[in-house]
Design a protein around this nucleic acid. Structure first.
Lengths: 230, 230
DNA sequence: GTACAATATTGATCTAGATCAGAAACCGCC
DNA sequence: GGCGGTTTCTGATCTAGATCAATATTGTAC
């Protein structure tokens, strides 16, 4: 399952249509981002392990296309999804020098992979690199704050929030793609898959969303969803 | 309620015995910590507001004595405690330039207060300052990861975890002090005060803890608590 | 296309913890 | 010390969402 770092092949995936076209983000990343410029583009096939918990954290990753989940396995066997990483997002910059989570490719993934040590050395000399590292951690803090806030809310609020967040992070059209299976969403929001299903059903009955397929939903009444998460 | 920055007075508090004697931590902070050296010591009386949500985040704080809570007020009126800050802990280094939370003194507090702009300028020139900022954010990420993990667990596990964490963060003796009221613990752990009370009662019946007073408990069977949070 | 496995939905119970209500303990103050 | 407000504890219900169980749908491989 583990993918060696240079994996220069990419199978065709049924989820390819679920993810954001990478063009503009790659452009931004390569132009404005001092770290991405240092790295090399690596491809991971769907389901591949990008890194494992407790492995040495040697690389820093930025998603270019596809979707990545990072998660931890708890002692009771439960799985906690830490985050979903979409094009433009960084992951793998752990507080320690060991990965605190697993990272797997949800769909086929292209990512810019940079040696952490190289980044660290560069940050010593260049302020913009040091600044960028601080910004990456700042974003991660905000995501975690959102997640903790979320975990104190009702299932309906969590799921509405998740849909809106995915809408914001992927295409801005009213069609939201959920590249990950229900199990992942459940483990991220701290509810069961059954609750996800039921609640999506309720939101659809209310006429606020419409499900095209399990991985593709339409926003019919975004304002109502926003009011719900307020 | 808002405390102007130089508040050079300190009333005597009944909670003074609940907090860690500051000597060794202050020593470490001033000696090893390149940021703390830049700041000035400020006192806040119990209950004082240190900063408010949406205020410009001009300062960075490090607790020297006492305890601070940071929290957010949600749109539904509920209060979410973000963190408790004990001697040695930094707070106020927001991802943005506005505070995302309130900070209040739980007991009388002494804190080293440093201008963020000064820190930022210094970080441009000195690698150790830039590094320290990254470390502070790294610690915050770990705390938030712990909290998200916690919020998916049962009330008993959350409370046992909280006691152990407080034991670790304050004196290492078997007596744990909880300087904050039950309401704060409840809002931090995402349970009700009633559940806190009942669960502490259960832990006491099990012979794992013994409550000296509401704010002071003895660990009778630390191993059992650790097994519980595993 | 057909078949099989994985994923998602729907239905019927059960329970941890919320909520509501009140009693007891504690603290600061005079 | 005794008083009044806050904090904590205890008891009785209620409910959101978990769990258990079965069915339906979807995607993949042949």
């Amino acid at each position: 399952m583990a993918a060696e770092l240079p994996v220069p092949r990419c199978s065709v995936s049924c989820y390819d249509d679920c993810v954001l076209p990478p063009a503009k983000l790659t452009g931004r990343a390569l132009a404005d981002d001092p770290i991405a410029k240092m790295g090399t583009l690596v491809r991971y096939p769907r389901g591949a392990e990008i890194f494992g918990q407790d492995q040495p954290a040697e690389y820093l990753y930025q998603v270019v296309t596809g979707a990545v989940r990072t998660f931890r396995i708890l002692t009771d066997g439960r799985r906690q999804i830490c985050a979903f990483h979409l094009p433009g997002d960084y992951f793998g910059l752990e507080p320690g020098d060991q990965h605190a989570s697993y990272a797997f490719a949800i769909s086929d993934v292209q990512a810019i992979v940079t040696e952490r040590e190289l980044v660290a050395r560069r940050a010593d000399r260049r302020r913009d690199v040091a600044k960028q590292l601080l910004v990456i951690r700042g974003k991660e803090i905000q995501n975690l704050q959102d997640q903790t806030l979320l975990l104190t809310k009702t299932a309906e609020e969590r799921i509405a929030w998740f849909i809106l967040q995915m809408a914001r992070r992927t295409t801005s059209s009213s069609t939201v793609s959920l590249p990950m299976p229900r199990r992942d969403i459940a483990d991220y929001l701290g509810v069961t898959v059954e609750t996800i299903s039921r609640t999506l059903g309720q939101l659809e009955s209310a006429g606020w969303i419409e499900s095209m397929s399990p991985r593709q939903i339409q926003l019919k009444n975004q304002a109502a969803l926003i009011r719900l998460v307020s």
